[in-house]
Measured scan of single mutants.
Amino acid sequence: HNLTITQGKLFFHYNPKLCLSEIHKMEEVSGTKGRQERNDIALKTNGDQASCENELLKFSYIRTSFDKILLRWEPYWPPDFRDLLGFMLFYKEAPYQNVTEFDGQDACGSNSWTVVDIDPPLRSNDPKSQNHPGWLMRGLKPWTQYAIFVKTLVTFSDERRTYGAKSDIIYVQTDATNPSVPLDPISVSNSSSQIILKWKPPSDPNGNITHYLVFWERQAEDSELFELDYCLKGLKLPSRTWSPPFESEDSQKHNQSEYEDSAGECCSCPKTDSQILKELEESSFRKTFEDYLHNVVFVPRKTSSGTGAEDPRPSRKRRSLGDVGNVTVAVPTVAAFPNTSSTSVPTSPEEHRPFEKVVNKESLVISGLRHFTGYRIELQACNQDTPEERCSVAAYVSARTMPEAKADDIVGPVTHEIFENNVVHLMWQEPKEPNGLIVLYEVSYRRYGDEELHLCVSRKHFALERGCRLRGLSPGNYSVRIRATSLAGNGSWTEPTYFYVTDYLDVPSNIA
């Protein structure tokens, strides 16, 4: 807008934040220059609390790290170098490059900038070799853009010569660093050979998330399962459950009422301010606690030095998902009996873990797994792929695949051998790939016309006998059925096997 004052003059007093240069501009645009008398524009009460600059400061050096910015700028000295009290560095987070010096300023003089007072450097006698002032900004957020400017702080001049310097606002972004852990990993099994893994992005990506790394490792069953005799009275049979499938998407929606109208769909109840505040506090606490764990609990591995020492970490090797089922080394339970199943799973520490690289999504279907087997899954978020990966501390989750139908069934015939004193040795093959492992066998036998009897055969007993022995049988026709019990439950009964026990007292003698 054009402003013209045809008559009258300007009068400025007691404006401590208004620089004289701005008042002189007002004289020019209003056409009143030359009308004012000496005392109409006070030299001592206008701009006496402001830094009124008329020179431009330029930054000469900028260096960044993930949490620091090192700045240096060209030296500046007023005509009387004693008038320079120091520099004021202003900075704040700036997602967009549209910041002005006066953003967030209120009537009390406060604003949204963080201000650092910096002492002037030592003055050199040689004007050509003056030290460049600077400042190291610490405690910054990774991968965050900051708006920065600097200006001088000078003393009051009796001659009211307006001098000083100020830089333009520059924008500097800190470097990326390792992201925080992925949030809320959930693993479920939808079949006997697959596990579905879902997660949420890290709360602090500290860069642009480029991919996720998912490692999985087959877990050995508890050692007590191999040692305890679950045929003993009072000892509860062990059981394991597989990871249940995901709930429906509708039930997972946030901010939804727990109660549904019987007449149909209901609208979600909005969260109160107290609920939102509580969630923010919980989120802040979780982030602080995660940072504490990362800094205190997890110790970084030592990389190899120039002395030739090897990095103890196993090298990563990509495998196809079809090879995942046989990740671990199978060892027989008892070496003397080769027909026992290889369900003991000690994992070799030198073995390469299978892994998958996930790009542009937060889910993965891990296939080719062994049925009813526990897996430990390790999830890392990465925001750099080359020249070397920059990934987060791992988040861990466990899951067990679903049982395989008929995996616990005894394959092959049940054979028998009759000894003296009416002892019958029953023999059968253990299931080759049971659900988890076989903890015991149930032997059901009966003599024709009598009630059915049951015998429990422990895992250890089966390994020693290759089956079991029935003792003290009365003469007669017998039928026997056997079924295995694994961590997933009972298998199917075998087809009945028949044998006849004679009275050993009636056996004919070869003595003449």
Score class of each variant (00 low, 15 high):
Arg286Thr: 11
Arg469Pro: 03
Thr288Gly: 11
Glu282Ser: 08
Ile438Arg: 01
Glu362Met: 09
Glu389Leu: 10
Ala335Val: 11
Val365Lys: 02
Trp216Asp: 00
Asp506Ser: 13
His461Pro: 03
Arg316Phe: 15
Met427Gly: 14
Val423Met: 06
Lys302Cys: 10
Leu455Ala: 12
Thr272Ala: 10
Tyr230Gln: 12
Tyr445Ile: 01
Ser342Lys: 03
Arg353Ser: 12
Gln252His: 08
Asn208Cys: 10
Arg316Ser: 14
Glu433Met: 06
Glu281Asn: 05
Tyr212Thr: 13
Arg466Met: 10
Glu249Arg: 08
Glu249Ser: 10
Lys361His: 05
Lys432Asn: 07
Gly412Pro: 07
Lys317Cys: 07
Val299Gln: 12
Phe246Trp: 12
Gln256Thr: 08
Gly412Arg: 12
Asn206Met: 06
Ser257Asn: 06
Arg447His: 05
Ala335Met: 11
Cys468Lys: 07
Tyr498Lys: 12
Glu420Ser: 03
Glu310Lys: 01
Ser342Leu: 15
Pro403Thr: 10
Gly308Val: 15
Phe226Lys: 04
Asp273Ile: 14
Val345His: 06
Asp506Phe: 13
Lys287Glu: 15
Arg481His: 04
Val424Thr: 03
Pro387Thr: 14
Thr373Met: 08
Pro403Gly: 03
Asn206Ala: 14
Trp216Ile: 10
Pro312Gly: 14
Tyr396Arg: 08
Phe289Trp: 12
Ser474Phe: 09
Pro238Arg: 06
Pro244His: 13
Ser341Trp: 13
Lys287Gly: 08
Asn490Cys: 11
Thr494Gly: 00
Ala381Arg: 03
Ser509Ile: 15
Cys468Asn: 01
Asn255Gln: 13
Leu473His: 01
Cys269Met: 03
Asn255Phe: 02
Ser444Cys: 15
Glu221Phe: 11
Lys287Trp: 15
Glu420Arg: 14
Gln429Gly: 15
Tyr500Ser: 10
Ser248His: 03
Lys432Ala: 12
Leu225Val: 09
Ile209Asn: 09
Ala330Ser: 15
Asn383Met: 12
Pro403Val: 07
Trp242Tyr: 05
Ile377Asp: 00
Gly308Met: 15
Lys236Gly: 14
Asp506Asn: 15
Glu290Gln: 14
Thr303Asn: 14
Glu227Cys: 10
Cys468Glu: 01
Arg353Ile: 15
Gly436Thr: 07
Asp408Glu: 01
Phe355Asn: 13
Glu350Gln: 09
Leu440Glu: 04
Asn421Gln: 08
Pro434Phe: 06
Arg370Met: 13
Lys287Asn: 12
Asn422Met: 04
Met402Val: 14
Leu505Pro: 12
Asn510Ala: 15
Glu282His: 02
Gly412Met: 14
Arg318Tyr: 06
Val439Ala: 13
Ser509Ala: 08
His371Cys: 09
Glu260Thr: 10
Arg313Ser: 10
Arg466Cys: 15
Ser305Lys: 13
Ala395His: 11
Trp428Tyr: 02
Val423Asp: 15
Leu225Gln: 10
Leu379Gly: 00
Ser243Phe: 08
Ser251Met: 15
Asn208Ser: 10
Leu437Trp: 02
Asp323Gly: 14
Pro300His: 11
Arg466Ile: 09
Asn435Met: 00
Pro475Asp: 03
Ala463Ile: 09
Leu437Cys: 08
Lys302Pro: 12
Asn422Gln: 10
Arg390Leu: 11
Glu265Thr: 13
His254Met: 08
Cys231Val: 03
Cys231Asn: 03
Thr288Asn: 13
Ala484Asn: 00
Pro205Phe: 14
His454Thr: 09
Asn383Gln: 07
Glu433Lys: 15
Glu260Cys: 05
Glu452Gly: 08
Tyr445Arg: 02
Leu505Thr: 09
Arg286Cys: 11
Leu440Phe: 08
Glu388Lys: 08
Ser344Ala: 07
Ser474Lys: 09
Leu505His: 08
Asn208Val: 09
Leu455Met: 13
Pro413Ile: 01
Val296Ile: 06
Leu225His: 05
Phe289Asn: 08
Met427Val: 08
Leu277Met: 15
Arg481Glu: 04
Phe285Ser: 10
Ser320Met: 06
Asn421Trp: 09
Glu362Gln: 13
Gln429Arg: 04
Asp408Ala: 02
Pro245Val: 08
Ser243Lys: 03
Arg240Ala: 02
Ser342Asn: 06
Lys278Gly: 08
Gly449Arg: 15
Trp242Met: 04
Thr343Gln: 07
Phe355Ile: 11
Pro346Ile: 15
Lys432Glu: 13
Asn360Glu: 13
Leu225Lys: 05
Glu362Arg: 12
Ala407Asp: 04
Met402Tyr: 15
Gln380Cys: 10
Ser398Val: 12
Pro387His: 06
Ala488Met: 08
Glu351Ala: 06
Cys266Tyr: 12
Leu379Asp: 00
His416Tyr: 15
Gly476Trp: 00
Arg301His: 12
Val414Arg: 01
Asp311Lys: 15
Ile276Asp: 10
Asp323Met: 15
Glu279Lys: 02
Asn360Arg: 13
Gly472Tyr: 09
